[in-house]
Computed example of a mutant assay.
Amino acid sequence: MTWQFQVGSLAKKYSVYIPDLLFFGGYGGMVAFKIVEEYPEMVRAMVVSGSILAMTDTLSESNLNRIGFKSSADLLLPTSVKGLKTLFALAVHKPMWFPNRLFTDYLKVMITNRNERAELLEGLVISNKDVTIPRFQKKIHVLWGESDQIFNLEMAKNMKEQLGENATMDIIKKAGHLAHLERPCVYNRRLKKFLTSVYSEN
């Protein structure tokens, strides 16, 4: 739902496919990394925003402690308007006002399959000892909101280093986790600039 500004803009020139995370809808970060890892012949390059390579148990615990939550489900699957407002406030650089009715409707429509989603979130967390960083041969561009509170800038920079010499990074000021929604024009310009550079090489 939050990527409409990008889908609409990109569809004018590109064929757009939206990878799906079961029960979460078009939620592509970790799914996209898996596609690049397992089907490299299908991918020319990748742009990643607000998603990390893998959620390890240590990283999960420290990150949740930092923002004051006991589990990913508590953060991402709120059960009240107050909880949803807290999540939204964490996701943006500058909180925006919406009526409670909108938050109530969002909870009813979007936060479904709660048990299945909670199990999936728990399953995404892997042990530190099981983590291996794939040797990606593709260009990967990290496009990040400077004020991201969910996966902060330090995490993004660490990931960029882990990705190696083919990775580049671009930071969007006055934007949080939802940089693509908060500053869609800036985000789309940076995104298209990278895509143009990729296609100009061929």
Rank of each mutant, 00 (worst) to 15 (best):
S49I: 03
H180R: 02
S60G: 11
Q6E: 09
A73D: 12
F194E: 01
L178T: 08
H177M: 03
P134D: 03
V81H: 13
K160Q: 15
Y199F: 14
M55Y: 01
M169Q: 09
L10G: 02
E201A: 12
T86Y: 06
M42Y: 08
Q4I: 04
S127D: 12
E119N: 11
Y106W: 08
T2V: 14
I126S: 05
A179F: 05
Y27C: 06
K108A: 14
F103M: 04
V43D: 00
F24C: 03
E122H: 06
R189K: 14
L181C: 08
G123T: 06
Y187N: 00
I150L: 11
D74S: 01
Q137R: 11
G8C: 08
S71V: 02
W97C: 10
K34P: 01
P40R: 04
A167L: 05
K160C: 15
G28I: 06
P40T: 06
V31S: 04
H93P: 03
N166G: 13
V48A: 11
L75H: 03
I18H: 07
L107I: 10
S147C: 09
V16T: 01
A156P: 08
D170Q: 11
V16N: 04
G176K: 07
S72E: 05
L178Q: 06
P184I: 02
N128C: 08
G8E: 10
D130M: 00
S49V: 00
K129M: 10
D105W: 12
F33A: 01
G123Q: 10
I67M: 08
S49L: 00
L178S: 06
D170V: 01
S200G: 08
A118W: 01
I150S: 04
E161R: 01
K193V: 05
D148H: 07
D74F: 01
T86R: 09
L121P: 07
D20H: 11
K129T: 15
T58F: 03
P95V: 14
M169I: 15
K139W: 13
E116T: 07
F23C: 09
H141T: 13
L153E: 07
K160F: 10
N63Y: 04
K108F: 06
Y14L: 02
Y39G: 00
N115A: 11
Y106A: 12
G164S: 09
L107Q: 07
G164R: 09
T79W: 03
S15V: 09
L76T: 01
G28S: 02
K174M: 05
Y199V: 13
A45Q: 09
A89E: 15
T104V: 12
F33G: 00
P184Y: 02
S15G: 13
R190G: 01
I67N: 05
V92G: 00
S15L: 11
T132L: 05
V48Y: 08
S62W: 01
K192S: 14
V186Y: 10
S80C: 05
A54I: 03
H93M: 02
F98D: 08
T79L: 11
E154Q: 14
K174T: 04
L120D: 06
D130I: 03
N115I: 02
D74N: 04
K129Y: 12
T112K: 15
L191D: 01
F69T: 00
A73S: 15
F24T: 04
L21R: 09
I140H: 02
L178E: 04
L143T: 00
W97A: 15
K192N: 15
A11H: 03
D148K: 06
H141C: 14
S51L: 05
E38S: 08
